[in-house]
Amino acid sequence: MEQEWLPLIERWIHFLAGITWIGLLYYFNLVQVPAMAAANADQGGPGGAGITKYVLPRALFWFRWGAVVTWLAGAALLGKHFVDAFTLQGQHVLIGIGAWLGTIMLLNVWGIIWPNQKKVLGLKPADDAEKAKARRLAFLASRTNTLLSIPMLLFMAASSHGAGLFS
């Protein structure tokens, strides 16, 4: 009984956290970035300071911890096949490619996006030039994760729905 429930619960947590993480990634790229550009270009408008002060810290909290929970639940799901997946062995090639993409994305979140966003948010001291550079780096890492999410989701899905399409 436990052997059937545990993978289901792990998969459930993987989906819930993954939707939180990737949903916020798409929010940043499809909504917030263009909204901030429009707000900054709107002379006499309210500007984007409210988004930076009130929305961004909360979104980044769920974003970065959603990434961690997604990865941990995914690793638990792989279980004894963890090494086979990451070394792209036999039938684990598809999930392995998805797992590698997800891992690179997690490292991007914690290694590039979050450290640079801390400068943008003023949680880490930075002058205006450093903030501008941090904003650009965080933006490019976020766009890279959006790019990587496209094959990542295909390979995650293909590992259990469509493996027969691959030779």
């Binding site: 790229n29 499809l30 792209l88 036999g90 039938q91 090639v93 598809l94 490619i97 490019l140 766009r143 890279t144 959006t146 790019l147 990587l148 999410s149 496209i150 094959p151 295909l154 390979f155 691959f166 030779s167």
Partner: peptide
């Protein structure tokens, strides 16, 4: 040359190209 990551369309097209490359890699490995 413009960075494709500066636009949503460029990002999506790059993602689709990478998907095609990785499908070829998966087929070669399986």
């Amino acid at each position: 040359m413009k960075n494709p990551l500066d636009s949503i369309a460029g990002t999506i097209i790059s993602g689709l190209v990478l998907t095609a490359v990785l499908i070829a890699l998966a087929n070669a490995l399986m």
